[in-house]
Design a protein around this nucleic acid. Structure first.
Lengths: 336, 336
DNA sequence: ATGCGACATGAAAACGTTTACGTTGCCGTT
DNA sequence: AACGGCAACGTAAACGTTTTCATGTCGCAT
C-alpha cells in the first residue's frame, strides 16, 4: 500500500495524467467541472505529488540551503527564525547545515547540498573569494551573510556595525563624556574591526579634539575584565568605556566594581549586541541592538528574488540591516 | 552548459551508465581498472549525481525533517546543534521548519514535508494522538521530543524533568533546609508538571515530614517576582525556594533582595534549566542543567535506527536524557 | 572439445512528474 | 457547407538515476 500517484488520481477521476497535473497546478486548460472531479479524487486518495519526481522534471527543488558556522545561543536562534519565516512565506523549504568550524567541513557540507537546493545562504568565516570559487557552483544563487566581502561576485547582507558603533559614540558624547576608550575584539574579526572603525569615525566627526583610545580584547568576559583594570590605570582616567561586545562590557564593569568605581557616575559603559543578559546586570547595560532575525529574513528575501528571476539582483549587491541604540543605566542617561 | 550527468561520465569513460552507477556506489561488479577510469572521468567532469533522480528511483531522500515550535535562545540553538551533528554523522540532511505557534501551522508544515524526508523529528505542544494520526503518514519513522506522550504509536525522547527535580530537592534537603516551596510553571505545561511531580516525589521519599508547599507561576520572571513576594508573606517562612525554571528563580531572588532578605543565608533558591544568565546573577543560581544538544542527537540516533532498519525500534519506545545538578551560591552550599 | 559457473558489462525498464505536441469537438465566419 | 480558430484533453517524451536481466567472456573441470 504505497502512496497514491498521479496515475491513480487520473484513473479515479477518469481523465489523463496530464489533466490531473494541469488541474492541480494553476488549473489552466481544464474545465471547472473536470477540475472539481480531479480535486475530489485527489482528496479521496490523499494524493500528494512526489517531490523528487517533480524536482527531476522541473529542475527546481523549492528548497534553500543555509550553511552556518559554529554559532551559539540567541544569535543562531534568531537568525534561523528570520530565515525560516521568510522562506515559509515564499513556500520554500529550509535545509540547514550548521556548526562548521573549519573550512574543510564547510566545503564538504557545501558539496553535499549540490543539487538539493535552488539557492544558498552562506555565513562562514572561511568564505574568502578562493573558497567560494572552489566550492560553489557558480550558477547557484547565493547570498553571503556577515562575511568578509569576497570580490563582487556575490550578494551580501551584513549588520551595520559601523553605524551602530557611531550611535553609541554619539550617545556617550551627548552624555557629556569626552574621554572615551574602546575595547577591541579579536584582531581578525570583521564585526570587531567594523565597530572600531565606527568608533573612530564618530569621534573624528563629532569630537575631533578627543583622544582616540583603544585597549585590546577578544570578545571574552575575561578580556573585558583585564581591559577594565587597564582603564583604571590610565591617566588621565577615561570617563566612558565602549566595548566591542556586551560580554567584554560586562567583564569591564566587574573590574570597575571590584575597584570600587561607580558605574555610571564615575565611568560610563556601553556594549554591543544586546545579549539577553545585558538588561540583568547591575547596572543594566546600555548597548546596541541588532535585529538578527531581520538579517536572516532579509537575506532570504534577497535570495528569493535571485531565484525567482535570475539576474534581477546584480552580483555584488550589498545591503545592511540596521542597529539600534538601547539606553540603560550603565551609560548614565538621566543623571546630571 | 548544464551540469554533467551520468551519461556524460559514461561516454567519457567509454562504458555504460550502469557501470558508472556501480563504480560510484560501492564499486561492486566492476574491475579495478574500469572503476579507476570511471572515477577519473567523473572527477574531470565535476560530476555530482542528481539528487532528485536518485530519490525518485531509490525512494530514499537521505533527509530528515525537524518540526519545531516557537523556541527561543539557547534551547533552540543547542537542540539544532545536537540534531545536526548526529544527522551529519549518518550522512543525513536536515530539513528544518520552526516557529509553529498553533496546530494548524504545524499541520501545514508537516504536510509540506511529505515525501521530502525519510523520517521526522517532532516537537510540538499540539502533538496529541489525534493530531498525529491526522497529519502523519503512519509509515513515516518519527521520533517525538519532549512531547505529551501520545499513545504507544510513536517513539519519544524526553528530558528527565522528574529526575532533575528530585536532584534539586535532595540537594536542598542536604543543605539542611526543611521548609521547601515550589514555584509552579504554566498549568498545562508538561515540563512544569513533571518537575513538580519530581519535587513531590523527592519530598515524600526523603522528607515525609516536611510540608508540600507550592505557589503559582508561569515561567516568566515577573511571576517569579510575585511568587517571591508571596514567599515573604508565608508563616512560618520557607527556608528554600525551588522554582520550576531559572527565570522565575531569578525573579524570585529579585523580590527577596528588594525585601532585604539575604540569599542564601536566609532563604536558599534553586532553579531549573541552567540558562546562561544563571551564573551571572548575584548570587549565582544553583540549578539543574539538561543537555539539550544530547536530546537532539539522541533523538536523531533513534530516528536513524528506525530508518535504517524499520521495525528495529519498537513503537512506543521511551527514552530520557539526564539532568544534572549545578551547585552555585544561591543554595548556600559551603555555608554552615 | 564441451559445458558450466563466476564475473564484468550493457540494454532497458522503472520511478512519478511536467509539458510539447497532436487530436478532437465546438462555435462562428465566410 | 466548408473552413479556421480555440479550448479541452490525451499521448508520449523527457528528466537522471538504479537495478534487473540478458549477454558475453574467461577459466576450469569434465
Amino acid at each position: 500500500m504505497s502512496a497514491a500517484t498521479i496515475k491513480d488520481v487520473a484513473r479515479e477521476a477518469r481523465v489523463s495524467v496530464a489533466s490531473v497535473s494541469r488541474a492541480l497546478n494553476g488549473g489552466h486548460g481544464v474545465t471547472a467541472e473536470t477540475s472539481r472531479r480531479i480535486h475530489e479524487a485527489a482528496q479521496r486518495l490523499h494524493y500528494v505529488p512526489h517531490a523528487a519526481a517533480r524536482m527531476l522534471i522541473t529542475r527546481r527543488t523549492n528548497t534553500v540551503g543555509a550553511l552556518l558556522p559554529d554559532l551559539y545561543g540567541e544569535f543562531f536562534s534568531e537568525l534561523i527564525r528570520g530565515i525560516d519565516l521568510a522562506a515559509r512565506a515564499r513556500g520554500l523549504h529550509l535545509l540547514v547545515s550548521s556548526s562548521h568550524d573549519d573550512a574543510e567541513a564547510a566545503a564538504v557540507a557545501l558539496r553535499a547540498m549540490q543539487g538539493r537546493v535552488d539557492g544558498l545562504l552562506l555565513m562562514s568565516p572561511h568564505a574568502d573569494a578562493d573558497f567560494l570559487r572552489q566550492n560553489l557552483p557558480h550558477d547557484l544563487p547565493t547570498v553571503l551573510m556577515n562575511t568578509r566581502l569576497a570580490g563582487n561576485d556575490y550578494c551580501a547582507l551584513s549588520v551595520d556595525n559601523d553605524g551602530g558603533a557611531r550611535l553609541m559614540v554619539e550617545h556617550l558624547l551627548a552624555q557629556g563624556h569626552r574621554r572615551l576608550v574602546f575595547i577591541q575584539g579579536p584582531p581578525g574579526n570583521r564585526d570587531a574591526v567594523e565597530r572600531e572603525l565606527g568608533y573612530r569615525e564618530a569621534l573624528a566627526s563629532h569630537a575631533p579634539g578627543c583622544p582616540v583610545l583603544t585597549l585590546a580584547g577578544d570578545f571574552s568576559e575575561e578580556s573585558g575584565y583585564r581591559a577594565g583594570q587597564q582603564v583604571l590605570a590610565m591617566r588621565p582616567r577615561p570617563d566612558a568605556v565602549f566595548a566591542a561586545n556586551d560580554m567584554m562590557a560586562i567583564g569591564c564593569m566587574a573590574a570597575l566594581r571590584d575597584a570600587g568605581i561607580c558605574v555610571p557616575e564615575e565611568i560610563a559603559v556601553g556594549g554591543f549586541d544586546d545579549v539577553p543578559m545585558a538588561r540583568y546586570v547591575t547596572p543594566p547595560l546600555t548597548t546596541i541592538q541588532v535585529h538578527i532575525a531581520e538579517l536572516g529574513s532579509q537575506a532570504m528575501e534577497l535570495l528569493g528574488e535571485q531565484i525567482d528571476q535570475p539576474g534581477s539582483v546584480p552580483a555584488g549587491t550589498r545591503r545592511h540591516v540596521g542597529a539600534e541604540l538601547v539606553v540603560r543605566a550603565s551609560s548614565g542617561a538621566g543623571i546630571a
